[in-house]
Design a protein around this nucleic acid. Structure first.
Lengths: 299, 299
DNA sequence: TTTTTAATTGAGAAAATTTCAATTAATGTT
DNA sequence: AACATTAATTGAAATTTTCTCAATTAAAAA
């Protein structure tokens, strides 16, 4: 009926004995275990009674191990060392160890990855693992520590902190506007190819609504799985993509992309940093979140 | 201030987690630890809260380990296995292992040792160690499991069971009575050498008092440290020794010694089997005591 | 559908642990 | 030699931990 053939005596009594035997005095053991010597004395007595074996010889005012006590000690010391090591490993892992972060691939590629080296410089002890998926992941089930999600900041059983508001605008290669096919006003779009992302099918429509030209129709359209591909296509001069300002900022800065029009559309949704309430206080999680919020504030 | 850098979470919580993780269900862990599943559930919750780390994923009505839980488990399993092994070793030692028996050397040589092989046949798993000393030993201090003591059966903090009453009688070599120096009545002793033992200086006087001849004086006297030596001398024909009937029985049976007179003196003291109350119930101790009492009853 | 199985929860009960204050006894100190 | 110190022990009471019970949720099996 019982998996372990032998029934262990009370664990705390074993620990009290182990500490006392190792340190030779009740006082020292008591200090190690944060209790009074009296408590230790009671525990040892309990253990001796449970086992029905005398472990210490009480001579003068000093304790010395009996043969049985000497038999028992090393195994216990070793056992408790193991337990301590196991817990210590877990806690070290908590402080340092790896941090798994989930986000959509476009954000990972265009915004997160370029910034990541700065975090790794600040916290070389934290190993980052990036998990990119299209769907919204269950943080608990997938062992995700932190996620960046797009939405309105309301999800069940997680904490959410806003990184930035979504703000989309058209971009294209600097080579795209040519003398015959300029891009000076939204109307010029009609002579160009519009690049769409399946994941965000409404971005173009919302932008055109925003500039007051809902009826503009492009000469051709191209659709990709993700914004990431649409942007890659834009860089290669295949047409005009539309994406969030944060995501394209680096490409704009480097000149790979230009924003032919001033107008950007502010959405009511945004990118949120999301994490399970349970892991909110873990040092590596806190460090990462603070860093990410700083990065988001910069741009 | 603290020897162990890390403070262990409650040991019972660790054990509850370990069992549950190893056996996959609360019910199984509860059975192993002889508690209800509810208790296990509380313990695991306590552990998770103490560590501030989620160890199980609660999906459906099934538990599965998180990455952290998987990190923690093997170390704990190992640690508890070691603790269990240490205690098991001690308990096996208690059942079998060695049994240290203290007694005076004469008794050991002349009464105990000849009988010992029979015990070893019955209990080959118990290793006997015989400790012979002249003085009365402190059982606790010397790690003695059982002693055979001479006295009146009253000693502090030990159990005592009577083996046999002391009953002394004179013995000598069968060669000793010669035509010129017979041994037919106590008076004949005057023509012989009396062999004494320092440890029991009054035995001869008490015997002579007992036979109503307190004034008999031997031609010569020889004194040894112990009765054992006196008997060895008697066997070699050096004179007449006096000793307890049980001790010399084997020598009488084998014909090495004879008892020239019928009269033996019953003393009010005797040999007692003595053991610390604390070890009274240990199987190997019980087995030995039962055997020894049987042997003593036979003779 | 109903029944069973598994885990969880909260409250109260039970058990274990700890402290406190008093005691014993040996060791240093003056 | 008297006195203060140090160490362990003890019993009773207080505290904390652990456990059970009964109720609840929810999925799986019949």
């Amino acid at each position: 009926m019982q998996h372990n053939a032998i029934q262990l005596p009370p664990l705390n009594a074993l620990r009290a004995f182990e500490a006392t035997a190792r340190l030779s005095t009740l006082a020292a053991a008591a200090a190690e275990l944060n209790v009074t010597p009296s408590a230790i004395s009671h525990q040892i007595r309990t253990l001796e009674e449970t086992l029905d074996i005398r472990l210490f010889r009480r001579a003068n005012r000093r304790l010395s191990l009996t043969k049985d006590g000497r038999t028992l000690l090393p195994g216990l010391t070793d056992g408790f060392r193991r337990l301590t090591a196991a817990v210590a490993e877990l806690e070290a892992n908590q402080r340092e160890g790896s941090l798994t972060i989930s986000m959509l691939s476009t954000l990972a590629m265009r915004w997160f990855m370029p910034r990541l080296p700065r975090f790794q410089l600040e916290h070389p002890e934290i190993e980052i693992r990036i998990s990119t998926t299209a769907r919204t992941v269950d943080l608990e089930r997938e062992d995700i520590d932190i996620a960046i999600r797009h939405g309105h900041g309301v999800w069940p059983s997680v904490h959410a902190e806003k990184l930035f508001q979504l703000e989309t605008l058209p971009v294209c290669s600097p080579e795209l506007p040519r003398p015959g096919t300029p891009l000076n006003s939204p109307h010029d779009i009609e002579r160009h190819v519009l690049l769409h992302a399946d994941a965000r099918p409404d971005d173009w429509r919302m932008w055109l609504d925003g500039v007051g030209e809902p009826h503009i129709k492009a000469s051709r359209e191209l659709t990709f799985d993700t914004t990431d591909f649409a942007l890659a296509a834009a860089i290669r001069g295949l047409g005009i993509a539309i994406a969030d300002r944060h995501i394209i900022q680096d490409d704009l800065d480097s000149g790979r992309l230009i924003a032919p029009f001033e107008t950007s559309i502010s959405h009511d949704s945004g990118y949120y940093l999301v994490y399970p309430s349970k892991r909110a206080s873990h040092p590596k999680s806190v460090a990462f979140r603070e860093w990410l919020l700083r990065e988001a504030a910069v741009g």
